[in-house]
Structures are given as C-alpha cells and as structure tokens.
C-alpha cells in the first residue's frame, strides 16, 4: 500500500533546530492527524513537505518517489496536493477557471497545439471544463461556476480550494488548518468531504489546531511540540497522554 512517509525529517535555520527526528506515515484511505500547540512547528513540517522550505536532514517519500528535495511543482506531479492555511484562490479568476488550473498536471495536448490554438487544445479545454463542472457539482458549487472566486463566502471559497486540489487527482492531500475560521455547520460539511476523500482511497494528512475536530476524524494522530513528535497513536491514546496534556496546558498558560 502506498504511503506518504517522513523519515528522520529535520530542519535547521543556521544553528537553530526547528524540527528534528520527525517520523510519520500517512497511509492511503485514512485520515491522519498532525496536531500541536501554537509554535509547535506544524508550519515548518508543512512547508518542508510541500517544497516551500529546503529540508536539512531526513527524507520525504510519496509512495516510492523521493520528494525530499523536489521543487514545489514536482511534488504535485508525484501525487501530493495541498490546501492552504489562509485560503488561496486566484481571486480575479472565475470559480471554474480556478478548478481548471488544478488539472494542469494532466496534460494531453502538446505545447505547439496549445500555442497555436489547434483543435486538439480546444477539445482538451472543453473536456476539462466538463470534468471541472462535475467536480463543482460534487461540492455543490456548480451555480457559482462563472463568478469571480474572490467574491464567494469563506466557506464556499474553502470548498473551491478543495475542488481545485481534487482536480489534480492526487493520491495524497495535505489539509493545512482547513477549518480555521469556520462555524460548526461549515466544519461538519468539510468533515464529510474529508471522509469522502478517504473513502475514495486517498491518504489525507490533516494538520489542525482544533484537537476535538481531529480526534473525531482521524484514525491515527501525531502530536508535535517544540519541533519534535511527543506522542502518536489513536485519538484515545493521544488525548490521554500526560505529555500531550502538559504541552497543551503549557500553551494555554503561556
């Protein structure tokens, strides 16, 4: 079974250690959680996985592909898609075009036919539009297809971002604090969508601050503090771990 695997991952800024000895496995068909108090180093891990930060030690694999030092755009080609902590849509662009961009990695027409606007390129665009509409339908967004994405409500924008990530047909999806700023109803809707991803056989890595939300969705949880994993296991196990409780309480008192 394919996995997203971090092995002895390490990040140093000069002499300062930002993360160390991070070993994680995200299996396909499951939702895996990564939690930790503020400043635990979650963002550093996300940036290393997604190619935004150079890795200083250890490896990252998607299946058999080593993406440790791959540039950001090749990571998507290896089968890992992501969403952003602060929703990042192309605000000037219509909803459907935002989703169309997600299809970029599956190219069928040649550069020349795309440049010259040959029929092959036209057919490709039409076929992709149909698939994009199907995706929007699945996320209940079809009626907004032609609106500028920047004008949608926060919850709808988050769903457009999910649809865009799905358009890349990834094997794994990394969700960076997806329910920040959502109300309970919206969060519940997203939880359904995440379960759907897992049921489709995709591996989901859910990075969240909200412990209860993660506990409800994930089969396996990793807890990060001070750049190191301090606990891992089932939600029950992790939430009763004295080390985890101390880390979160320390955070609350700080």
């Amino acid at each position: 079974m394919t996995t997203l695997r971090l092995t002895d991952l390490e990040k140093r800024f000069g002499g300062v250690v930002a993360s160390e000895d991070v070993n994680m496995t995200v299996p396909a068909g499951r939702i895996t959680g990564l939690i930790g108090p503020n400043g635990a180093g979650k963002t550093t891990i996300v940036n290393m996985i997604t190619g935004m930060l150079p890795v200083t030690g250890g490896t990252i694999h998607v299946g058999d592909t080593d993406i440790t030092h791959a540039p950001a755009h090749e990571i998507c080609r290896a089968g890992l898609a992501r969403t952003f902590q602060n929703i990042r849509l192309l605000g000037e662009t219509s909803v459907i075009d935002n989703v169309l961009i997600g299809f970029h990695r599956h190219k069928s027409s040649s550069l020349l036919s795309a440049l010259l606007g040959l029929p092959a390129a036209g057919r490709e665009t039409r076929a992709l539009r149909d698939r994009a509409m199907a995706l929007l339908d699945r996320f209940d967004l079809a009626r907004f297809a032609d609106y500028p994405a920047g004008g949608l409500s926060y919850g709808h924008q988050r769903k457009v971002e999910m649809a865009r990530a799905m358009a890349a047909a990834p094997d794994f999806i990394l969700l960076d604090e997806p329910i920040a700023g959502m109300n309970d109803v919206e969060s519940e809707g997203l939880a359904q969508i995440f379960r759907g991803f897992a049921e489709d056989g995709k591996g989901v890595l859910l990075i969240e601050h909200n412990v209860r939300f993660v506990a409800r969705l994930c089969s396996h949880i990793y807890v990060l503090d001070g750049g190191r994993l301090i606990s891992e296991g089932t939600p029950d196990h992790v939430l009763n771990d004295p080390g985890v409780i101390a880390a979160y309480l320390g955070d609350a008192h700080a």
Partner: peptide, 29 residues
C-alpha cells in the same frame, strides 16, 4: 497567437503564476 494562448492551459498557468506563485507551484505548474 495571443488569443489562442490565453484561452488554453498555458494562459491559465500564466494567470495562476501571476496571481499566486505558491498556488501555481502546488498545482504542478
């Protein structure tokens, strides 16, 4: 040439890069 370019995948990729490089890269561009 410009018209054909901007309504196809290359035009979409250009738009994505112009508006947000991180997003473009995350989608394999």
């Amino acid at each position: 040439l410009i018209w054909a370019l901007e309504r196809g995948r290359i035009g979409r990729a250009f738009d994505a890069i112009r508006q947000d490089e991180a997003v473009a890269a995350s989608l394999g561009i």
